[in-house]
Computed example of a mutant assay.
Amino acid sequence: MEKTFIILKPDCMEKKLWGKVLDRFADAGFEIAACKMAQLGSELLRTHYAHVADKPFFPEIEAFMSSRPVIMVVLKGDDVINKVRDLLGPTDSTKAPAGTIRGDMGESMMINVCHASDGPETAAAEIARFFKPEEVLG
């Protein structure tokens, strides 16, 4: 059974959308293998966003992602990575169709409700970055 990593981002938390988002994942048949809430710090964000940490817009990402606690979730299910990304819609919420999580609840490229792993290798690395092995069940 495949696993993926999700962050319910600060905009999701501020607007109290976490229940609606998790309901969509549950309705799609996915199970939670791990879940916790945390305030993300600079070092962890710099590691997580290493692919853009040297870009001029990174300080804005860092400020946003550390602005309030987030919920981190490991979901499991058949083809969960692709199916979650389909449920979310495109990263840019302004281009996400109605009926997708980002299309219905997001605002922009950054204020887009959730982060989700984009492939099996990324999912494994992100799960290991945010969870200890014993915290991930099943």
Score class of each variant (00 low, 15 high):
Leu8Lys: 08
Glu62Tyr: 07
Asn82Asp: 14
Ala38Asn: 11
Ala26Phe: 13
Asp23Gly: 08
Lys95Phe: 01
Ala116Trp: 10
Thr91Ile: 08
Leu137His: 07
Ile6Lys: 09
Lys15Ser: 05
Tyr49Val: 10
Asp54Ala: 09
Asp23Phe: 06
Lys36Gln: 04
Met105His: 14
Lys76Val: 02
Gly29Tyr: 05
Val113Asn: 08
Lys9Gln: 05
Pro69Asn: 04
Glu134Arg: 04
Val80Trp: 04
Arg24Pro: 12
Glu134Phe: 11
Ala125Asp: 04
Asp79Val: 03
Pro69Ser: 13
Ala98Trp: 00
Pro10Ser: 10
Gly89His: 05
Asp27Cys: 00
Glu62Phe: 06
Glu14Ile: 10
Thr100Pro: 08
Lys132Val: 01
Arg102Cys: 03
Pro97Arg: 08
Glu43Val: 10
Phe130Trp: 15
Val52Glu: 13
Gly103Thr: 02
Phe131Leu: 07
Thr94Asn: 12
Arg129Ala: 10
Thr122Trp: 01
Gly103Tyr: 09
Ser108Pro: 07
Tyr49His: 11
Ile7Leu: 08
His115Tyr: 15
Asp78His: 09
Val84Tyr: 01
Gly138Arg: 00
Ile81Met: 03
Gly89Lys: 06
Gly138Pro: 00
Lys76Ala: 09
Ile61Trp: 08
Glu62Ser: 08
Lys36Val: 06
Met110Tyr: 15
Lys36Arg: 09
Lys95Leu: 11
Pro133Ser: 02
Ala125Met: 03
Met105Asp: 02
Gly41Gln: 14
Leu87Thr: 11
Val113Trp: 10
Leu75Ser: 07
Glu60Tyr: 00
Asp23Tyr: 11
Val80Phe: 02
Ala128Lys: 14
Ala38Cys: 15
Met72Cys: 14
Leu137Asp: 00
Lys3Pro: 05
Val70Trp: 03
Arg46His: 11
Glu14Tyr: 13
Met37Ala: 13
Leu17Glu: 08
Gly41Arg: 12
Cys114Glu: 06
Ala28Ile: 07
Ala96Leu: 11
Val136Arg: 06
Arg68Asn: 06
Ile6Thr: 12
Ile81Phe: 11
Asp11Tyr: 06
Ser66Tyr: 04
Leu40Glu: 05
Cys114Met: 09
Lys36Trp: 02
Glu2Thr: 13
Arg129Ser: 07
Val21Tyr: 11
Ile32Gln: 01
Lys132Tyr: 05
Leu44Lys: 14
Leu45Ala: 05
Phe64Gln: 06
His48Gly: 05
Ile7Phe: 01
Leu44Ala: 13
Pro90Asn: 07
Val113Cys: 10
Ala38Gly: 07
Arg102Glu: 04
Ala124Glu: 11
Asp78Glu: 14
Cys35Phe: 08
Met1His: 10
Pro133Ala: 09
Asp86Phe: 12
Asp86Ser: 15
Gly89Val: 09
Val52Arg: 13
Val113Phe: 12
Gly99Ala: 13
Lys76Arg: 15
Arg46Cys: 03
Gly41Val: 01
Met13Trp: 00
Ala34Gly: 13
Val84Gly: 02
Met1Asp: 11
Arg129Gln: 14
Ala38Val: 15
Glu31Thr: 14
Lys95Pro: 01
Ser42Gly: 10
